[in-house]
């Protein structure tokens, strides 16, 4: 056993396997409860919110901005579902919209970054990181990623339509 690592814990005594399993089980339960304490109330709150007109209201507010990302206004409802609930709720809204492959990719990118914000924000805080700041980061990064992908896509479309217009290529 050659130890080349610089930060190898030299002084640490290695416990035997049963001790490690016991430590793992108790530590696993302890961390689970730490997370559950936060996620249960948040999950209930968000689920109750689903029964109120708040989601529709938010969708109407965000609809006009969707064009910036190359998406139809209705996609705003999918984003509200993704932000507050989860990706499966968002998919349920997306499928009936019959979006183009680019639009589905755009939704997947932006929602992949920012989803389930309430519960995951709470979970992030329990790790000791700043949950609120990180949640804000996710929203900002999701928008930046959306603009980036839209930019790539327009470039690609312009380039390919230009290539198509060349004589002898179509």
């Amino acid at each position: 056993m050659s130890e080349t690592g610089t930060s190898a814990p030299a002084g640490e005594t290695i416990p035997d396997i049963p001790t490690r399993i016991r430590t793992g089980l108790s530590a696993g339960l302890a961390t689970s409860f730490k997370i559950i304490k936060v996620s249960i109330p948040l999950y209930v709150a968000v689920t109750l919110l689903k029964g109120t007109p708040v989601l529709d209201l938010l969708g109407n507010v965000f609809a006009p901005v969707m064009g910036i990302f190359g998406l139809p206004g209705e996609a705003a409802f999918a984003f509200v579902a993704a932000f507050l609930l989860n990706l499966y709720a968002a998919i349920a809204v997306i499928v009936p919209l019959h979006l183009t492959p680019f639009q589905v990719t755009q939704c997947g990118l932006m929602m992949g970054i920012a989803h389930n914000l309430v519960v995951e924000g709470g979970v992030l805080s329990t790790t000791g990181a700043r949950g609120g700041v990180l949640t804000l980061c996710r929203l900002v990064v999701a928008c930046a990623a959306g603009l980036l992908l839209r930019g790539f896509w327009s470039l690609w479309e312009t380039a390919s339509s230009w290539a198509m217009s060349l004589p002898g290529l179509s």
Partner: peptide, 12 residues
């Protein structure tokens, strides 16, 4: 789950 509904996985 987005590839399943027609998205481009590698791009994402």
């Amino acid at each position: 789950i987005f590839v399943v509904i027609g998205g481009n996985g590698p791009a994402i």
